[in-house]
Structure formats: C-alpha cells, structure tokens
Design a protein around this nucleic acid. Sequence first.
RNA 1: GGAGAGUUGGCCGAGUGGCUUAAGGCGCACGCUUGGAAAGCGUGUAUACUCCAAAAGGGUAUCAAGGGUUCGAAUCCCUUACUCUCCGCCA
Length: 426
Amino acid sequence: MLQASFIKANKDLVINGLKKRGLKDDELALIDTIIALDEKRKNTQTQLDKLLSENKKMSDAIGGLYREGKRDEAEAMKAKVSGLKEETAALQETMRTTSATLNDHLLHIPNLPHESVPPGNTDEDNEVFKDWPNDLPDMGENALAHWDLAEKYNLIDFKLGVKITGAGFPLFRGQGAKLQRALINFFLDEAQKAGYEEIVPPLLVNEDSARGTGQIPDKEGQMYYVEKDDLYLIPTAEVPVTNILRDVILKESDFPIKLTGYTPCFRREAGAYGKDVRGLNRVHQFDKVEIVQVQHPDRSHDTLHEMLDHVEGLLQKLELPYRILRLCGGDLGSASALTFDFEVYSAAQKKWLEVSSVSNFEAYQSNRLKLRFKDADNKNKLAHTLNGSALALARIVACLLENHQTPDGIKIPEALKPYTHFDIIC
RNA sequence: GGAGAGUUGGCCGAGUGGCUUAAGGCGCACGCUUGGAAAGCGUGUAUACUCCAAAAGGGUAUCAAGGGUUCGAAUCCCUUACUCUCCGCCA
C-alpha cells in the first residue's frame, strides 16, 4: 500500500495516477479523507504521548514517595493520577479507531501506475510492446484444439477430474503427466541458471501472508479458504515466496534477492464461466514456476526487463509464437506499478492465451510486508519487489499441444527433449 | 488429540510489582594502542509513531500477540499463537 505521508506530500501525483487506473471521483475523494485522518491521528498521538508522559512521571514519583515512607503524599498523588485515566482511555480509543479506519482506507488504494503505463480501461487498451514478427502459424482446417489432442493421445482426462473433484481440476496421465513434470524441471533449471535460488514453500498460508502480497483485501474471493484452520490455499507461489521477506531489514549488499519456486496454484475463479474456460484455458488448479526478485529502488526497472528477457527466452526455447503486452492503467493489478503480460498464440483456437505476467510492485508490497533495507545513510527504506510467471504450466501445455501437432503426433521442442526423454507424443 | 515446560534485544542470558533508562556477556561498528595483527581499553549498537522548518535533541509504544488488574507490569490474571518434551495417531 501507499504510505499516508507519501499521499499527503504528493496529492496531485496520486490523484493523477489513480485516474489513469480509471478510478471515479467518489473513489478519489478518499484521498482527502485519508489526509484528514492522518492529520487527526498525528494530533491524537501528540496529545496522548504528552498525557502518558505525565502519568509516567507521577507514577515514578509515587514509587519514590513510598520508598521514603510518605504514605499520605503518595495516596494524594494516586488520586490525582486516577483522574487522568479516563482522558487517557478516551484518547487511546480515538487513536485506535482513527488508525484502523485510516489503515483500512489505505489498503484499498491501489498502487500508482508507472509513467510508462498506457492509459485505458480494458484489456483492449493494452499496448503491444513486442509483437510476433512473422505470420501467425496456420495449422490448417484439421488442426485440433488441445482438449481434443489431450483426448486423442490420452494426456489429460477432464472427466476424471470432475469425478474426483469437480470442474476445473484436470487430471494429467501418461505422456501428459510426463510432459508436465518435464516442463517444471526445465523451468526450474533455467531459473537456476539465471541465478535464482529454488524454494519449495508451503501451499497454505496464513492471513498475514495473504495480506502482505496484497491478496487480502483485493482478491480475497479468488482464494480457497480453509476455515477450520484459518488458512488460504495459495493462488500463486508469489505469496509464500515473497513473504519469506516479510518483516525483514536487508543490507544494500543483499540485493538482488532472486528466488524461484514451483507450486500448484489454486484459484476459485468464481463467476468465470463461459467461452474462455474450456480445456486448460482457465482451471482451478494448475502448476506454475514463479520467479521473484527483491531489488534496490534505483534498479528495479532494469530488473523488470531482465525478468522479461528470462521469460522471453523460455518461450523461444519452447518454439512458441508469443507477444508481449504492456498493461494499461485499467487492466493493471492493484498492487502493480508496471506489468507486462506474455501471450502465446494458441494455433487451433486461433487466439492469444496469457501464459505469464511480469510485474514491478515497487514499494507497494514492501510497505505491507515491512520489507526494508538500510541505505548508505543507515536509514531504513522500502525495497522493491518484482515477480513473474516463468511459466504457467496449464496454458503452456495447451499451446505446446496445439502448435506442435503434426499428422504423426505432437513434436517435442529440442530444449525439452532432455526432460521428456521422448521426441514425440503419438 | 492428551499432559507438561517454555517464548526477554542481532545472539546467549539475568530479571517474582516502583533504584530497570531491560543487568551481564557475545557479536558488530568506530576510536585508542601496534611495524601489522591479536589481546586490552574506550565509545556506540533495535523498530514504529510523534514533536521540531531541518539538524541536533525530545516524547510515546514495543520483553510472542491481544485483553485485564494497578497510581505503576518483562514480572500478577485471562485468551490466542508458536516452540520443546512425553503419550496417542501417522507417510
């Protein structure tokens, strides 16, 4: 979240940023409310501190009087301090409610878009940052969609997934399961080559962690919640992996911190029914390798581009046609300052599928996480966090099947063969 | 799931209601000393909020978390979380 002090000092900047996201006037009015609440909080704090200071001095004095055996004077002073109690309690209550309300408002203010973020309201306004340079692959009229290929070669059984769990929980089998495992290992090895430390994190997280990366309150309905134990199933490895750094103060020499992790991801996708959910296009459980970096604020945007290069390299090695989009203000996730989406052309469905989202959150997550570093002057500053999918499995599998289908079977890209140990699915 | 013991600063550890501003030690930083180092000596060493135009310097809070008792709580009471030991269950 943004800091109240920052909002106060940069009101116009904040309002313009939020306008770029398409926030309406009544939502923007919250900014003035926040500034006023912060002012109230400060005044209350000052008053309260003064009162507490007086109380403390008198209590110390009472102790001294007792030691000197001056009971009567001590009793008299006790009565006096007791009189201040009500006032203290009232100020404390004001402090509590003001801070809580302020904090609640702050949690609902999204991050400011980076200056390079294009204006716009929907995904149609996203800027094509890098386009597929060639003609889009034409597989001909007989090309099969991945759900048909999956059935033909017995790779994925959607019906069994429904039997065991429900819709959106595909079951991979045979060469399909092996392809899945091969991709995970390929992605993890590539991340390791790029200097990322591998993490196997917990798949359930507590409320603090979910709030730290911004899933609560913005995307609470997206997560599966285990009520009995008050835990959330992770929607992405970003949540447990980034929370490694929660409440941490780094040294400048610790930068950059580079972490990667493979995890299944669970998303409720409530209400998302219809044309885009068929096959692997949108599922409740999928596998993903995530890359996370924590970086010095001066270098985070260079790092973002380094991460884009990494993801791009993966798609090239998988020989898939892709393009990169720079998300517009209205399509940007609330915690992100700048996001690039990678889309792969799904040759049989004849449409682009999002397979990766690479974001710089700047200090937004860090402020929630209390992730700081000591700068050259030994002052604590908020670090910048970034993450990206490298890559999301289910849709990559869909695109691999569709793009690499031949009359003889599905060809495995060269880079993946050492992992699958087979050259073709047939 | 049952029983018991715990949780104090970066780390170890003392502390059973007011001479605690959390002792002492380790570590770390700087200085003195030295040909250089070690040892020794000295100084400093958290986080958040807040006051001040700023710096300097104050104030408040924080001894797992949250409540309570009290003029006053690391210390007493309640709730919760976590850790350890034993028992049960178990890959």
